Computed example of a mutant assay.
Amino acid sequence: MDNTLFPIDSATLTELKARLAVEAQERGLVDVAYRTIDTPVGPLLLAATEAGLVRVAYEKEDFSAVLDSLASKISPRILKAPRRLDPVAEEIDEYFSGTRLTFDVPLDFSMSSGFRQSVQRYLPHIKYGHTESYKEVAEHVGNPKASRAVGTACATNPLPVVVPCHRVLRSDGSLGGYIGGLEAKTTLLNLENAA
């Protein structure tokens, strides 16, 4: 018997990985599917559970660390399975091309809890092209004195871009912080012509 290893060309390897991803999903072996996409604000990692999109991460967050966090908080059964995230990638492409003003994909907020999750669930109500202050968001979620906690909820938003924490500014109109960096926040606000 010949034990020589035959190298597999990259096209065959890609096809085998795709088949593995499909079979794993069909058998219910994938709890978190992920993929990366290129955008005007840099590469983004997208991750989804059966419930919906659970994580959008900027490259500066370290994709490996993000996947480790998902493994510890959601499930270690994570697989690169781009097809499950095709609808999300399509909506994000439409957003960056200026043809989508709201996202319709289901969201999974299980990476947050309590007040932070309340804030993050409110953020999609800030319309495209508009901004609110941390204080205004605090008032909308029923805790007018929690401006600082709103800032923390925005800073820890697991779904940036899709859940628009970039639309929240300081009371004086300055940017405040942003998980993707101030350049990314500025790019998103300029894309939306936010005022």
Rank of each mutant, 00 (worst) to 15 (best):
L44N: 01
P164T: 01
V168R: 01
A153D: 06
L5Q: 12
D93P: 01
L70C: 14
P43C: 12
A194Y: 02
Y122W: 14
A81V: 09
V119L: 12
S110W: 08
L159V: 08
A18D: 14
K17L: 15
A194L: 03
H125R: 14
Y95R: 09
D108E: 07
R170G: 00
A81C: 15
P144M: 01
T4G: 15
D104G: 15
F96V: 06
L123N: 12
K73S: 13
Y122H: 15
H166V: 11
V163D: 02
A194M: 07
V32H: 06
I126V: 15
V54S: 12
H130D: 02
N143K: 05
K73A: 14
N143Q: 12
A81F: 06
S75W: 00
T152I: 10
V141D: 08
V56I: 11
D104W: 03
A138Y: 08
D62Q: 04
S72Q: 12
R35N: 12
L189R: 00
H130L: 11
Y58H: 15
D68M: 00
I78Y: 05
A11L: 05
G142R: 14
F63A: 06
E26Y: 04
L53M: 03
A194H: 03
S75K: 02
T131W: 07
L191Q: 14
M1I: 02
R55Y: 02
R170I: 00
F103S: 00
T99K: 07
P144S: 03
K135Y: 04
P106V: 02
V141A: 09
D38R: 13
G176K: 05
D104C: 02
P7S: 14
E183C: 00
L13Q: 15
F109Q: 04
I78D: 04
D62F: 08
E94V: 04
E91R: 05
V66L: 12
G176P: 04
E23P: 01
F63L: 10
L79S: 11
L44K: 06
F103V: 00
E132W: 03
A184F: 09
I92S: 07
G151I: 07
V41E: 09
F109A: 08
E26D: 15
E139W: 01
G151W: 00
P144F: 03
P124N: 03
L16P: 05
R77Q: 00
P76E: 12
D68S: 06
S110I: 09
H140W: 09
G151P: 13
Q120D: 10
R167G: 11
Y134D: 07
V161E: 04
A194I: 07
T99I: 00
Q117A: 08
